[in-house]
Simulated assay, not measured.
Amino acid sequence: MYGNSAYNAYKTNSVNFASKDQLLLMLVDGAVKFAKIGRQAILDKDVKKAHENITKTQDVFYELMATLDVEQAGEWGHNLMSIYDFIVRKLTEANIKKDIAIMDEIIPLIEEVRNTWYEADKLSRRSK
């Protein structure tokens, strides 16, 4: 019991004291995790769990879209917004159809988004 409460306190503090960059990385990690859980739930025929986790994945991308300053980011920002929009639309389709093939198509793209943000974070740290 103590281990769970200590872990929960750690998680809460991790989020409460994380920088904006760290929060972004936590978000994209969560998107990958939720997408994979949703995919497995489709395989397991657990409709409720699939829906909940695909929706959580979409929520991450909605948050990324809401916080992306497209005007400041220029063409790169517009391209990123298009990718986020594509992911959300494909997740919606996968969720409606409970289609494993769509999840298999979209999860690598979600992982690529995560990997890109990790690489950007590394480059940002090096330049400071």
Results as ranks from 00 to 15, higher is better:
13 N>G: 03
105 E>S: 02
91 L>V: 01
81 M>Q: 15
11 K>N: 07
27 L>H: 01
15 V>S: 06
114 R>T: 05
70 V>K: 02
64 L>N: 03
103 M>D: 05
37 I>K: 01
68 L>K: 01
121 D>P: 03
87 I>P: 03
62 Y>N: 10
71 E>K: 01
97 K>E: 09
10 Y>A: 15
1 M>L: 13
36 K>G: 00
123 L>R: 13
3 G>R: 11
42 I>S: 00
47 V>H: 12
81 M>H: 12
99 D>K: 00
26 M>S: 00
99 D>A: 01
72 Q>Y: 11
31 A>N: 00
69 D>I: 07
38 G>R: 01
128 K>L: 11
55 T>M: 14
20 K>E: 14
36 K>W: 08
12 T>G: 11
121 D>G: 10
117 W>T: 02
6 A>C: 13
31 A>G: 01
113 V>R: 01
6 A>H: 13
111 E>A: 10
112 E>A: 10
127 S>T: 11
12 T>S: 12
99 D>L: 05
52 E>D: 14
44 D>H: 02
128 K>Q: 11
74 G>I: 06
113 V>F: 04
82 S>V: 09
106 I>P: 02
100 I>F: 01
115 N>R: 05
92 T>D: 13
33 K>A: 10
45 K>G: 04
115 N>K: 10
74 G>Y: 13
5 S>Q: 14
75 E>D: 15
116 T>G: 07
38 G>F: 04
116 T>V: 09
86 F>G: 00
74 G>N: 08
28 V>R: 00
114 R>W: 02
46 D>F: 08
5 S>W: 13
86 F>I: 05
80 L>M: 15
127 S>I: 03
15 V>N: 03
79 N>P: 00
5 S>F: 13
45 K>H: 15
17 F>A: 05
79 N>R: 12
5 S>P: 12
77 G>R: 03
127 S>G: 06
76 W>F: 14
87 I>D: 04
127 S>D: 10
93 E>C: 11
67 T>S: 15
96 I>W: 12
69 D>E: 14
32 V>F: 04
74 G>D: 13
53 N>D: 05
81 M>E: 15
100 I>S: 02
93 E>F: 06
25 L>Y: 00
89 R>K: 15
115 N>F: 09
